[in-house]
Simulated scan of single mutants.
Amino acid sequence: MLKRFGIATAIALLRFLAVLPYGVTARFGDALGALLYRVPSRRRRVVETNLALCFPQWSEAERARVAGLHFRHAIRSYVERSVQWFGSARKLEKLIQLESAIDLRDPDLPPTIFLGFHFVGIEAGSIFLNYSLHRRCGSLYTPMSNKKVDDIARAARGRFDAEMVPRGDSARAVLRMLRERKPVMLGADMDYGPRNSTFVPFFGIDACTLTAVSRLAKAGRAQVVPFIGEVLPNYRGYKLKVFEPWRDYPTDDEIADARRMNAFLETQIPAMPEQYYWVHKRFKTRPPGEPSLY
């Protein structure tokens, strides 16, 4: 009962925050993140470990600075689910700048996989990309452990006519949607375990990386278009940046294709390292015989 009460309270708080001015909600999330960073925690250690592995050339002071900023961004991103899940389309239009290298409303858009990356703005970016397409599309998601929260999240993420597809065993659904010329949004830059994955470098560290994007693009004859959601400074909202389709992708080499995804990230993260999702154990799965890095 207490657990249900806690979830109900959290959802009610998100709905309340959604009606406040965005700047108030964002500042509240920022302050909460700054406060929680001061408390030693497992997630804080994960952030610090990831930054030490990926940026050994930085001083300890610089890594600590970025870790603190990231923790604030990460907690704030959860608070801002309020706006992203429950805010109106008009409010999202005011908050999110769209910068696209392709015409998202092109009626002749070929089969397309929109490849999202786990910066803290991915939720806002994914929902607004769905809205900006102005057509039925598909979106892969990882179900949450609590069914009530999962139902609310799935409805919120799919409210602009997205078919929400659970990530597990989703290949058939993705290929079906691509055949129907429905764009598909998915993220693949986290450690989902050894299944359908390979080890390729990510900032010089072997990282368990999905090869499914390459296979799905090949089987569905789809172009792959990266996108990134960025949190703008001074509580001004977000920018959704949609890139050009990757040329000469996929290839016949799934490992090279996986490496290309990580290499793309390596070009984008240095511009805003505090916004990449370092709270995730990116190096949790290790090659056989290697000890845990966490």
Results as ranks from 00 to 15, higher is better:
2 L>V: 10
2 L>Q: 13
5 F>M: 13
5 F>G: 01
9 T>K: 04
11 I>W: 06
11 I>V: 13
13 L>V: 13
13 L>K: 02
14 L>F: 12
16 F>H: 02
26 A>N: 02
28 F>H: 02
33 G>P: 04
34 A>H: 12
38 R>N: 15
41 S>I: 14
41 S>R: 12
43 R>E: 15
44 R>P: 01
51 L>T: 03
51 L>N: 01
61 A>V: 15
64 A>K: 08
67 A>L: 14
68 G>I: 12
70 H>Q: 06
71 F>D: 11
73 H>E: 15
75 I>M: 02
76 R>I: 07
76 R>L: 10
77 S>G: 02
78 Y>A: 00
78 Y>T: 03
78 Y>L: 14
81 R>H: 13
81 R>K: 04
91 K>Y: 09
92 L>G: 00
93 E>N: 10
93 E>V: 03
105 R>L: 05
106 D>E: 11
111 P>R: 01
113 I>K: 03
113 I>D: 09
118 H>L: 12
118 H>W: 01
123 E>Q: 08
124 A>M: 13
125 G>F: 12
134 H>T: 05
135 R>A: 01
140 L>T: 02
149 V>C: 14
153 A>W: 08
154 R>P: 01
155 A>C: 07
158 G>L: 11
159 R>N: 04
162 A>E: 05
168 G>K: 15
171 A>P: 00
172 R>Q: 05
173 A>S: 11
175 L>H: 03
177 M>T: 00
179 R>S: 07
182 K>C: 04
182 K>D: 02
182 K>Q: 14
183 P>A: 13
184 V>T: 08
185 M>S: 10
189 D>I: 15
189 D>S: 06
191 D>N: 14
191 D>I: 14
193 G>S: 05
194 P>H: 06
198 T>I: 13
198 T>V: 14
206 D>M: 15
208 C>N: 10
209 T>S: 14
209 T>N: 08
211 T>R: 01
220 G>S: 12
221 R>V: 02
223 Q>D: 04
227 F>C: 03
227 F>M: 07
230 E>N: 07
231 V>H: 06
233 P>G: 05
239 K>E: 14
240 L>K: 04
245 P>H: 13
247 R>G: 00
247 R>D: 08
250 P>C: 10
250 P>Y: 13
251 T>M: 04
254 E>W: 08
256 A>H: 11
258 A>M: 07
262 N>A: 05
271 A>D: 11
278 W>I: 03
282 R>E: 11
282 R>C: 08
291 P>N: 13
